[in-house]
Design a protein around this nucleic acid. Sequence first.
RNA 1: GGCCCCGUCGUCUAGCGGUUAGGACGUCAGGUUUUCAUCCUGAAUAUCGCGGGUUCGAGUCCCGCCGGGGUCACCA
Length: 473
Amino acid sequence: MSDTHVRTRIAPSPTGTPHIGNTRTALFDYLLAHKYGGEFILRIEDTDQDRSVPGSIEKIYEIHHFLGLVPDESPQVGGPFGPYIQTERLDIYQKYAQLLLDTGAAYHCFCTEERLKQLHETNKFAKYDRFCRHLSSEEVASKLASGAPFVLRAKLSETGFTVWHDLVQGKLSLPNTECDDKVLMKTNGIPTYHLASVVDDHLMKISHVLRGVEWLASTPIHLFLYEAFGWEPPVLAHVPLLLGPDKTKLSKRHGAKSVLEYAADGYLPEAINNFLFYLGFSYKDNSDLLTLPEMIEIFDETKIQRQNAIFDIQRLNYLNSQWIKKLSSADLFDRLKSFIPTDWSPEKVLQIIALVKDRAFTLKDFAPAAEYFFSTPTVESSAILAQSAHSSAETKAWFATAIKIIEDISDFSSTSLHEQLSEAQAASGFSPKEAFMSLRVAISGRNVTPPLFDCFVILGREETVKRLQAVLS
RNA sequence: GGCCCCGUCGUCUAGCGGUUAGGACGUCAGGUUUUCAUCCUGAAUAUCGCGGGUUCGAGUCCCGCCGGGGUCACCA
């Protein structure tokens, strides 16, 4: 295995925006390829035109771009084994389907939809009864000549076991009797997943097929095809699923979001990658902040957990808050652009970022925490008075003292303000909490803000005084 | 239902026959702080799903059971 050139692929179908569970598989595929210096390929499996949702492909590109899981080959950037969209490869599948027919690995099936439906009416778990498998060549020829619609089915072995070594699941063995003679080529001449993916994986020289465990049960069909073609099958790795908080498979119905939605909710790509990495994988205490290159270094495909992992938003929140703290204010400013009003001055925003980043969990937390710097809050005098047991007159006197200091102070800095206002507060008869909370409410209209004097500085001397004067006038 | 996979704190996990079963997130308490958050310290939370074996000794090996998940389309 060490001497094979590693090529992995993520092969989404454009039936909507992939949810975050699918993206975790993509991350693992990306890491596996890069760990061995190979290529990571993105292939679009759009063989089911009925379920195709316009715009899905663009969303898939967006996800990869956002997370930095950039494919080395894809419909977008091309590559030596294209096209990378299956509906553009239809003639290729035709050719290989014919090969299967020629070697007797596949057969024509003329069963109607109604007959198949009937089969399932008696038993909803019924397999295809292989009715057409035993048609004589004359019967097939005459049906074909009559123009009857048909599909191509795999002529699977009716005995024995399919055995293989799975990189994450270990040694696996499935009885062949459990497998169906699956449809390979549909009536409309378009292949199903089974045929298309096997042909493409081989033609695109995919060395490792790392995909979700939901594919485990159909692996015997894929292995059957490799053998029928006389091809060396790729290394297989089936990774566990992501479960919702209710321990059932993550799905749209359970509110499973796509990475794009998390991005819109203010989560950083670094945090999402990190979070996904730790779900089903272990490194130290699973809380180190890791970059993609670091993850590539650490990743070990043989150490992926076999259990399904439950999606826990609190861990994502933690990782996100840590990444936000780690980022420079300038970097954060760039990422904040779509989360704050465009008319806010960059200089001021930068100053505010430095104060707010330690208390933010997502990028969405910035705007609400900063808006009172840009618009004058409406503050009732009763709200000020509620901060202390002092009378209106006493509070006014304290404000007058504070305003005077702010107006006169030569060094309008947080430390100087702190020094002088604390001194005045001590002589005022107000407790620190009473004194400063009332000022806080006066300038911001709220009782939770970053450190008060830092807020004064950002507001500026003039605006601070203006707001303090306004409330008790 | 058949087949297959999985089963350590609420969550992600460490553990690879002998440990007081460890860490992180979360939770709670205390400290820091004029507020909130950050940060620091501490605490609680797992009879290792259950029951049998094997062994001097089992979370670690074997069997059964139970529980959870996946799959059984002309969907991927």
